[in-house]
């Protein structure tokens, strides 16, 4: 390739650095170390359980996690009996009774985690017109994923002096547009963790984000384990084929 060509590529590369796609002037969330982000990463089970507790006691008031079934919580280390107990704490829509009226029943492990509201309209009515989004896939539905969620939860600060904050909204450093309908959801010592970990805002944010990383990608650990085996297999197979190819091609003159 000619020198001129390299010059083009260099310029192109430099330009692209200055123009990384930004989302409405919100700050890029700081990078956080997650146990599951490494190549052979796994979920921290203790953190998952704490995170589930934070979700249940704080977030579930407004947010659903509707693609997750109770049964799957065994990945967090809960036993079948514990899951049955957790499920039975909640009510889900039951069958229509013989009078034609809807009923509710206790949830079983086969059920999906229920939504706090029967429908979107009820959710909006209870939240000043804002719709709390479902959280199951939140870690995959935002550009910076788990870093963003953690930053958001800990990013409630006072707005700058000349910032016009619409009534009912709250200032958040990392939310696009900086105005978010959700008030700061976490307070220090809001929950009491069973394992004795101190429930600081930062700790709860970290744990619930880990939990949400799991709800978004429950297959992650299995995926990476299988991936390792597949890659090793393909390296071996390709190497064998390469040797065969070279040996065959040796006699091509």
């Amino acid at each position: 390739m000619t020198k001129l060509l390299w010059r083009y590529i260099l310029i192109g590369g430099l330009i692209s650095f200055t123009f990384s796609a930004s989302a409405n002037d919100a700050e890029k969330p700081p990078a956080v170390t997650w146990s599951f982000n490494k190549l052979w990463g796994t979920f921290d089970r203790a953190s998952l359980q704490r995170g589930f507790q934070v979700y249940k006691q704080v977030c579930a008031t407004c947010h659903s996690v509707k693609y997750m079934r109770y049964e799957k919580l065994s990945a967090l280390g809960f036993s079948e009996a514990e899951i049955k107990a957790i499920a039975s704490e909640h009510e889900v829509p039951g069958p229509i009774n013989d009078n034609g009226e809807p009923t509710t029943r206790k949830a079983t492990p086969a059920d999906f985690l229920p939504s706090p509201f029967p429908n979107d309209q009820a959710a909006r009515a209870a939240n000043n017109g804002a719709l709390p989004p479902d959280l199951t896939l939140m870690a995959k539905a935002r550009e910076f994923g788990t870093n963003y969620i953690q930053a958001l939860l800990t990013g409630y600060v006072n707005p700058p002096k000349d910032f016009h904050l619409v009534e009912g909204m709250h200032y958040n450093k990392y939310f696009p547009g900086h105005q978010i309908a959700m008030p700061a959801p976490l307070m220090d010592n809001q929950v009491e963790f069973a394992d004795g970990t101190k429930a600081t805002i930062h700790q709860m944010a970290h744990d619930v984000t880990t939990f949400l990383a799991w709800t978004a990608e429950p297959e992650m650990e299995a995926r990476k384990q299988l991936g390792l085996k597949v890659i090793i297999y393909l390296i071996v197979f390709s190497a064998m084929l390469y040797v065969l190819k070279r040996r065959a091609w040796k006699d091509v003159k």
């Binding site: 597949v230 393909l234 390709s238 084929l241 390469y242 190819k245 091609w249």
Partner: peptide, 15 residues
């Protein structure tokens, strides 16, 4: 053989 080897590398990237 060359195509199969190429497939192996391609599969490696895909995987």
């Amino acid at each position: 053989l060359k195509d199969l080897f190429g497939l192996g590398v391609f599969a490696l990237i895909w995987a």
